[in-house]
Protein backbone atom coordinates (compact mmCIF):
# COMPACT_ATOMS: atom_id res chain seq x y z
CA UNK A 1 0.00 0.00 0.00
CA UNK A 2 1.39 3.45 -0.85
CA UNK A 3 1.94 5.90 2.04
CA UNK A 4 -0.04 8.52 0.15
CA UNK A 5 -2.46 8.09 -2.73
CA UNK A 6 -4.13 11.05 -4.41
CA UNK A 7 -6.54 10.69 -7.29
CA UNK A 8 -8.46 13.41 -9.11
CA UNK A 9 -8.02 15.88 -6.26
CA UNK A 10 -9.84 19.19 -6.68
CA UNK A 11 -10.10 22.29 -4.52
CA UNK A 12 -11.45 25.77 -5.25
CA UNK A 13 -11.29 28.96 -3.24
CA UNK A 14 -14.13 31.33 -4.02
CA UNK A 15 -14.61 30.08 -7.57
CA UNK A 16 -10.89 29.92 -8.36
CA UNK A 17 -9.65 26.37 -8.87
CA UNK A 18 -6.39 26.02 -6.94
CA UNK A 19 -6.08 22.28 -7.53
CA UNK A 20 -7.49 20.73 -10.72
CA UNK A 21 -7.67 16.99 -10.80
CA UNK A 22 -4.30 16.14 -9.28
CA UNK A 23 -3.15 12.51 -8.97
CA UNK A 24 0.05 11.03 -7.56
CA UNK A 25 1.29 8.30 -5.25
CA UNK A 26 4.05 8.27 -2.66
CA UNK A 27 5.60 4.91 -1.83
CA UNK A 28 6.49 3.89 1.70
CA UNK A 29 9.99 4.98 2.74
CA UNK A 30 10.32 7.39 -0.15
CA UNK A 31 11.34 11.05 -0.08
CA UNK A 32 8.83 12.62 -2.44
CA UNK A 33 9.27 16.17 -3.68
CA UNK A 34 6.26 18.28 -4.65
CA UNK A 35 7.89 20.98 -6.74
CA UNK A 36 6.25 24.03 -8.20
CA UNK A 37 6.34 27.82 -8.34
CA UNK A 38 4.57 29.97 -5.74
CA UNK A 39 0.83 29.70 -6.18
CA UNK A 40 1.03 26.32 -7.93
CA UNK A 41 -1.20 24.74 -5.29
CA UNK A 42 1.49 22.89 -3.30
CA UNK A 43 0.42 24.09 0.11
CA UNK A 44 -3.26 23.46 -0.65
CA UNK A 45 -2.45 19.86 -1.58
CA UNK A 46 -0.30 19.32 1.49
CA UNK A 47 -2.84 20.89 3.83
CA UNK A 48 -5.54 18.60 2.46
CA UNK A 49 -3.24 15.63 3.12
CA UNK A 50 -2.48 16.94 6.62
CA UNK A 51 -6.19 17.23 7.39
CA UNK A 52 -6.27 21.03 7.68
CA UNK A 53 -8.43 21.53 4.61
CA UNK A 54 -11.39 19.76 3.03
CA UNK A 55 -11.21 18.72 -0.61
CA UNK A 56 -13.96 19.46 -3.11
CA UNK A 57 -13.53 16.23 -5.05
CA UNK A 58 -11.21 13.30 -5.54
CA UNK A 59 -9.89 10.40 -3.52
CA UNK A 60 -7.17 10.86 -0.91
CA UNK A 61 -5.58 8.30 1.36
CA UNK A 62 -2.83 8.98 3.89
CA UNK A 63 -1.38 5.86 5.56
CA UNK A 64 -4.51 4.08 4.38
CA UNK A 65 -6.86 6.61 6.01
CA UNK A 66 -8.92 9.51 4.64
CA UNK A 67 -7.28 12.56 6.28
CA UNK A 68 -10.62 14.42 6.35
CA UNK A 69 -11.84 11.77 8.81
CA UNK A 70 -8.50 10.65 10.27
CA UNK A 71 -8.74 12.41 13.61
CA UNK A 72 -6.52 11.69 16.57
CA UNK A 73 -5.40 8.23 15.38
CA UNK A 74 -3.97 9.49 12.10
CA UNK A 75 -2.41 12.59 13.65
CA UNK A 76 -0.45 10.32 16.01
CA UNK A 77 1.21 8.67 12.98
CA UNK A 78 2.07 11.84 11.08
CA UNK A 79 4.63 14.60 11.73
CA UNK A 80 4.03 18.06 10.31
CA UNK A 81 6.45 20.93 9.82
CA UNK A 82 4.54 24.02 8.77
CA UNK A 83 5.85 27.05 6.93
CA UNK A 84 5.51 29.36 9.94
CA UNK A 85 7.78 28.64 12.86
CA UNK A 86 6.40 30.50 15.89
CA UNK A 87 6.45 28.66 19.20
CA UNK A 88 5.96 29.35 22.91
CA UNK A 89 9.06 31.49 23.39
CA UNK A 90 9.08 31.40 27.19
CA UNK A 91 9.69 27.65 27.35
CA UNK A 92 13.02 25.87 27.12
CA UNK A 93 13.77 23.48 24.28
CA UNK A 94 13.48 20.50 26.63
CA UNK A 95 10.17 21.68 28.12
CA UNK A 96 8.55 22.12 24.72
CA UNK A 97 9.79 18.79 23.39
CA UNK A 98 8.59 16.95 26.49
CA UNK A 99 5.21 18.68 26.26
CA UNK A 100 4.83 17.54 22.66
CA UNK A 101 6.17 14.06 23.43
CA UNK A 102 3.26 13.69 25.85
CA UNK A 103 0.79 14.16 22.99
CA UNK A 104 1.91 10.98 21.22
CA UNK A 105 1.39 7.33 22.17
CA UNK A 106 4.98 6.22 21.43
CA UNK A 107 7.28 9.24 21.31
CA UNK A 108 10.92 9.10 20.32
CA UNK A 109 13.30 10.10 23.18
CA UNK A 110 13.84 13.88 23.20
CA UNK A 111 17.63 13.49 23.34
CA UNK A 112 17.63 11.36 20.22
CA UNK A 113 15.53 13.86 18.27
CA UNK A 114 17.70 16.79 19.37
CA UNK A 115 20.79 14.97 18.19
CA UNK A 116 19.14 14.28 14.86
CA UNK A 117 18.42 17.97 14.25
CA UNK A 118 21.71 19.14 15.80
CA UNK A 119 20.30 21.01 18.79
CA UNK A 120 21.74 18.89 21.60
CA UNK A 121 23.71 21.72 23.19
CA UNK A 122 20.60 23.96 23.24
CA UNK A 123 18.45 21.57 25.30
CA UNK A 124 18.26 23.91 28.31
CA UNK A 125 18.01 27.18 26.36
CA UNK A 126 14.86 29.28 26.28
CA UNK A 127 13.30 29.26 22.83
CA UNK A 128 13.40 33.08 22.65
CA UNK A 129 17.22 32.90 22.67
CA UNK A 130 17.44 30.60 19.62
CA UNK A 131 18.37 31.93 16.18
CA UNK A 132 15.90 31.64 13.31
CA UNK A 133 17.69 28.59 11.94
CA UNK A 134 17.75 26.92 15.36
CA UNK A 135 14.03 27.56 15.80
CA UNK A 136 13.44 25.91 12.43
CA UNK A 137 15.42 22.88 13.64
CA UNK A 138 13.30 22.78 16.76
CA UNK A 139 10.25 22.97 14.52
CA UNK A 140 11.51 19.88 12.73
CA UNK A 141 12.25 18.20 16.07
CA UNK A 142 8.59 18.74 17.03
CA UNK A 143 7.53 17.07 13.78
CA UNK A 144 9.74 14.07 14.62
CA UNK A 145 9.08 13.69 18.35
CA UNK A 146 6.05 11.43 17.87
CA UNK A 147 8.15 8.98 15.82
CA UNK A 148 5.82 9.46 12.82
CA UNK A 149 5.55 7.04 9.90
CA UNK A 150 5.06 9.97 7.53
CA UNK A 151 6.58 13.44 7.72
CA UNK A 152 5.32 16.53 5.89
CA UNK A 153 7.86 19.30 5.29
CA UNK A 154 6.20 22.33 3.74
CA UNK A 155 8.88 24.54 2.16
CA UNK A 156 11.37 23.77 4.91
CA UNK A 157 14.08 26.17 3.71
CA UNK A 158 12.14 29.12 2.33
CA UNK A 159 13.83 32.32 3.49
CA UNK A 160 17.07 30.58 4.48
CA UNK A 161 20.48 31.81 3.45
CA UNK A 162 22.50 29.31 1.36
CA UNK A 163 24.48 27.84 4.25
CA UNK A 164 21.37 27.40 6.42
CA UNK A 165 19.74 25.62 3.48
CA UNK A 166 22.67 23.21 3.22
CA UNK A 167 22.34 22.50 6.95
CA UNK A 168 18.62 21.84 6.55
CA UNK A 169 19.33 19.48 3.66
CA UNK A 170 21.71 17.52 5.86
CA UNK A 171 18.94 17.16 8.42
CA UNK A 172 16.43 15.95 5.83
CA UNK A 173 18.99 13.40 4.66
CA UNK A 174 19.37 12.22 8.24
CA UNK A 175 15.59 11.71 8.42
CA UNK A 176 15.92 9.46 5.43
CA UNK A 177 18.15 7.19 7.49
CA UNK A 178 15.17 6.63 9.80
CA UNK A 179 13.44 4.92 6.88
CA UNK A 180 10.36 7.14 7.13
CA UNK A 181 8.29 8.48 4.29
CA UNK A 182 8.78 12.19 3.63
CA UNK A 183 6.66 14.51 1.55
CA UNK A 184 8.56 17.70 0.86
CA UNK A 185 7.25 20.76 -0.94
CA UNK A 186 9.61 23.32 -2.36
CA UNK A 187 9.89 25.89 -5.09
CA UNK A 188 13.63 25.38 -5.25
CA UNK A 189 14.50 23.01 -8.04
CA UNK A 190 17.95 22.24 -6.62
CA UNK A 191 16.37 21.32 -3.29
CA UNK A 192 14.06 18.78 -4.90
CA UNK A 193 16.93 17.44 -6.99
CA UNK A 194 19.20 17.08 -4.01
CA UNK A 195 16.75 15.53 -1.55
CA UNK A 196 13.94 13.74 -3.34
CA UNK A 197 13.85 10.19 -4.70
CA UNK A 198 10.98 11.21 -6.91
CA UNK A 199 9.68 14.59 -7.97
CA UNK A 200 6.22 15.66 -9.01
CA UNK A 201 6.15 19.07 -10.68
CA UNK A 202 2.87 20.93 -10.37
CA UNK A 203 1.84 24.20 -11.96
CA UNK A 204 -1.55 25.85 -12.03
CA UNK A 205 -2.97 23.09 -9.82
CA UNK A 206 -2.05 20.28 -12.23
CA UNK A 207 0.73 17.72 -12.45
CA UNK A 208 2.94 18.73 -15.36
CA UNK A 209 5.67 16.11 -14.91
CA UNK A 210 6.68 13.29 -12.65
CA UNK A 211 9.86 11.26 -12.36
CA UNK A 212 13.22 10.88 -10.70
CA UNK A 213 15.54 13.89 -10.72
CA UNK A 214 17.48 12.18 -13.57
CA UNK A 215 14.58 11.41 -15.87
CA UNK A 216 12.24 14.30 -15.16
CA UNK A 217 10.72 15.83 -18.26
CA UNK A 218 12.50 13.36 -20.57
CA UNK A 219 15.79 14.88 -19.59
CA UNK A 220 17.79 11.70 -20.26
CA UNK A 221 16.65 11.47 -23.86
CA UNK A 222 16.29 15.14 -24.75
CA UNK A 223 18.50 16.64 -27.45
CA UNK A 224 22.02 17.33 -26.24
CA UNK A 225 24.24 20.17 -27.31
CA UNK A 226 27.95 19.84 -28.05
CA UNK A 227 29.73 23.11 -27.57
CA UNK A 228 33.30 24.25 -28.27
CA UNK A 229 35.37 27.15 -29.56
CA UNK A 230 36.15 26.97 -33.25
CA UNK A 231 39.95 26.86 -33.77
CA UNK A 232 41.35 29.92 -35.51
CA UNK A 233 41.19 30.20 -39.30
CA UNK A 234 38.34 27.70 -39.64
CA UNK A 235 34.87 28.26 -40.95
CA UNK A 236 31.58 26.71 -39.72
CA UNK A 237 31.16 25.13 -43.13
CA UNK A 238 34.38 23.15 -42.61
CA UNK A 239 32.77 21.08 -39.85
CA UNK A 240 31.51 17.57 -40.71
CA UNK A 241 27.98 18.32 -39.39
CA UNK A 242 25.50 21.22 -39.27
CA UNK A 243 26.38 23.72 -36.56
CA UNK A 244 25.59 27.24 -35.51
CA UNK A 245 27.56 30.01 -33.89
CA UNK A 246 26.43 31.09 -30.45
CA UNK A 247 28.16 33.82 -28.53
CA UNK A 248 31.66 33.14 -29.85
CA UNK A 249 31.26 29.37 -29.65
CA UNK A 250 30.02 26.64 -31.90
CA UNK A 251 26.94 24.66 -30.93
CA UNK A 252 25.96 21.31 -32.45
CA UNK A 253 22.57 19.97 -31.50
CA UNK A 254 22.11 16.24 -31.67
CA UNK A 255 19.79 13.46 -30.55
CA UNK A 256 22.72 11.01 -30.72
CA UNK A 257 25.52 12.75 -28.85
CA UNK A 258 27.74 9.66 -28.59
CA UNK A 259 27.89 9.21 -32.35
CA UNK A 260 28.10 12.91 -33.18
CA UNK A 261 30.87 13.48 -30.67
CA UNK A 262 32.79 10.59 -32.14
CA UNK A 263 32.50 12.04 -35.65
CA UNK A 264 33.52 15.46 -34.44
CA UNK A 265 36.57 14.31 -32.50
CA UNK A 266 37.64 11.94 -35.32
CA UNK A 267 37.47 14.90 -37.67
CA UNK A 268 39.52 17.07 -35.30
CA UNK A 269 42.12 14.40 -34.51
CA UNK A 270 42.64 13.72 -38.21
CA UNK A 271 43.50 17.40 -38.64
CA UNK A 272 45.55 17.55 -35.42
CA UNK A 273 43.17 20.14 -34.05
CA UNK A 274 42.32 20.75 -30.42
CA UNK A 275 38.76 21.95 -29.71
CA UNK A 276 39.00 24.40 -26.79
CA UNK A 277 36.18 24.35 -24.23
CA UNK A 278 34.67 21.14 -25.59
CA UNK A 279 31.61 20.05 -23.58
CA UNK A 280 28.42 18.03 -23.93
CA UNK A 281 25.37 19.64 -22.35
CA UNK A 282 22.06 18.17 -21.30
CA UNK A 283 19.14 20.44 -20.50
CA UNK A 284 19.60 21.12 -16.78
CA UNK A 285 16.80 20.25 -14.37
CA UNK A 286 16.35 23.98 -14.07
CA UNK A 287 15.79 24.29 -17.84
CA UNK A 288 13.25 21.49 -17.67
CA UNK A 289 11.53 22.99 -14.66
CA UNK A 290 11.27 26.45 -16.18
CA UNK A 291 9.97 24.94 -19.42
CA UNK A 292 7.38 22.84 -17.56
CA UNK A 293 6.08 25.55 -15.29
CA UNK A 294 6.10 28.37 -17.83
CA UNK A 295 2.70 29.99 -17.78
CA UNK A 296 1.29 30.16 -21.29
CA UNK A 297 1.35 33.74 -22.55
Amino acid sequence: MPAIAVEGLRKSYGGVEAVRGLSFEVAEGEVFGLLGPNGAGKTTVVEILEGYRRRDAGRVSVLGVDPAAGGRGLRARVGIMLQECAMPRALSVRELLELYAGYYPRPRPAGEVLELVGLTEKVGARIRTLSGGQQRRLDLALALIGDPELIFLDEPTTGFDPSARRDAWEIVRSIRTLGRTVLLTTHYMDEAQSLADRICVIAGGEVVAEGTPETLGGRQTAAARIRFVLPGGLDLAALPMPARADNGRVVVETATPTRTLHELTAWAVARELELPGLEVLRPSLEDVYLELTRTPA
Binding site: G51, Y52, E84, A86, Y103
Partner: peptide
Protein backbone atom coordinates in the same frame (compact mmCIF):
# COMPACT_ATOMS: atom_id res chain seq x y z
CA UNK B 1 1.53 33.17 14.93
CA UNK B 2 0.70 29.62 13.85
CA UNK B 3 1.19 27.99 17.27
CA UNK B 4 -2.42 26.78 17.33
CA UNK B 5 -2.20 25.46 13.80
CA UNK B 6 0.80 23.34 14.72
CA UNK B 7 -1.01 22.10 17.83
CA UNK B 8 -3.98 21.08 15.66
CA UNK B 9 -1.61 18.85 13.69
CA UNK B 10 -0.80 16.81 16.82
CA UNK B 11 -3.04 14.17 18.40
CA UNK B 12 -3.82 16.52 21.31
CA UNK B 13 -7.64 16.65 21.57
Amino acid sequence: SGVLKRLRGTPLP
